[in-house]
Structure formats: structure tokens, C-alpha cells
Design a protein around this nucleic acid. Structure first.
Length: 222
DNA sequence: GCGTGATCATAA
DNA sequence: TTATGATCACGC
């Protein structure tokens, strides 16, 4: 099945609503997709199926999934209580001071301008095909949320620009955190900070803490 | 290696 | 039980 990109945000939301309540098995059938027995070696599998099902541009580029709408698609695993099981990956942490000069032009803000969150059951005791898809939430940060994200981002980026990236801990940041994002811990990328010569460091990414994503997806019940 | 999609596995 | 640090798969 080849799904064309949605033309309007309402169309996108309608499509997401139409798959809410389905099991992963039912959604996979629509796309003639095979379900992995375990997600251990297919970590991004559901996210990819969701993109396919909703008509996202399958490009692996640092831009929103629905470029024409400026909307990012995120699947989010929840437990029996509806709480996120994991933090949510946003994007890589750029190490170029120029790219980090302002929140307004940051990759993080770009990705989080508007997000379609699609929760799904991820209880270990439930076989993958029987897990159900939840109600989608189309979200934009309110003023308080954006301020906190910006503050976290600014604090973390200040450290990167100053050459203190190795001092950054995942425990920093209230909503936003920086953690490793690589194939393995031996990966290296160039770190061109203000302190002088270029060094190599482990690639990292920005993540949203579960407490924050929970406040977002529970908006649906407010 | 970089960027996409993320979850795994173990220490705290 | 939770969160940090590490890792899996894929296209290019």
C-alpha cells in the first residue's frame, strides 16, 4: 500500500484518528508489513510503520516528517497506566556554535514546532501484534512549555559552545536532556567549540523526558 | 559517519 | 522501579 502525503493538518489528524484503536496486527495488514517477533533488533519498526501508514515522507533528513505541514510524527510507547515508558528522541545535538546561536533557529525548535503524537501499548506481557494504537494528539508547545524547553536548550548549548560537552550529564535539563546517540560508544564526531582546536567526541542527541511527554499526551483528557 | 526511526540493558 | 548510558537497523 502506498499512502500519499496528507494535504492538510486536519487530513493528517483524521488519518491518525482512523487508526486509533486498531491493533498493531491490523495496521500492519493494511501495509502488508511483517511484524517482528521481538523489537530487540527492530527498535524503530513501529515508527516506520506509522510513517508508512500516515503517508509521511520517508526521507531521512533533519526536517519534519510532513514537510509541507511542518508537522513531526512521533510514536510513543505507553504502559498500562498510559504513561510513557521511554524518553523521546528529538534530533542530534549539533556541535557547531553557529547552529547553536539561537533557540529560534535550532533544530530542536524546528522539530518541535508541531508534533503529532501517536501513543501505543508497549506492555511486555502483550504480544506485539495484539498491542493497540491510542488516540493521537496534535500538539504545539504553549508558552510555559516553550520557555522551559528554551531554558534547558540554552543551558546545554552554552556548555557545548564553551567546550564543556563532556561535562554534560543526562540528568541535566528539566524537560530536555542530552544523551548518547550512536551505533556504539566508540563512534566519534567532530566537536568544533570555541575553546580552540577541534576534538572528537561521542555523538549525542536531544531527548524529551517521560514526565514532559506524559503531560502532552494526557492533554487529550483535559 | 550522519541522520532517520527508536528501545535495550544495567546501574543506581 | 527508573533513568542513564549503550545499542539496533537502515539509506546514503
Amino acid at each position: 500500500m502506498n499512502v500519499s502525503p496528507p494535504v492538510t493538518r486536519q487530513e493528517l489528524l483524521d488519518r491518525a484518528k482512523s487508526i486509533a484503536g486498531l491493533t498493531i496486527q491490523q495496521l500492519a495488514n493494511k501495509s502488508n508489513a511483517c511484524i517482528p517477533e521481538s523489537t530487540t533488533h527492530a527498535k524503530g519498526w513501529f515508527g516506520n510503520l506509522l510513517e508508512l501508514s500516515l503517508g509521511a515522507n520517508a526521507a531521512s533528513a533533519p526536517e519534519p516528517d510532513f514537510v509541507n505541514l511542518g508537522i513531526e510524527l512521533k510514536s510513543i510507547p505507553i504502559d498500562d497506566n498510559g504513561k510513557p515508558k521511554e524518553s523521546t528522541y528529538i534530533c542530534v545535538t549539533q556541535l557547531d556554535p553557529v547552529a547553536l546561536s539561537s533557540w529560534e533557529s535550532s533544530l530542536v525548535k524546528c522539530k518541535l514546532t508541531e508534533v503529532l503524537w501517536v501513543p501505543f501499548e508497549a506492555n511486555k506481557n502483550t504480544p506485539v501484534p495484539l498491542r493497540r494504537i491510542g488516540s493521537p494528539v496534535l500538539w504545539q508547545a504553549n508558552q510555559a512549555q516553550e520557555k522551559q524547553l528554551k531554558d534547558d536548550w540554552q543551558e546545554l548549548c552554552d556548555m557545548i559552545v564553551l567546550g564543556d560537552i563532556d561535562k554534560i550529564s543526562s540528568s541535566m535539563g528539566k524537560y530536555l536532556q542530552i544523551r548518547p546517540k550512536a551505533a556504539h560508544s566508540k563512534c566519534l564526531t567532530k566537536d568544533k567549540n570555541q575553546s580552540g582546536e577541534n576534538t572528537l567526541t561521542l555523538p549525542r542527541g536531544f531527548y524529551l523526558r517521560p514526565a514532559f511527554t506524559y503531560s502532552i499526551i494526557s492533554q487529550a483528557n483535559h
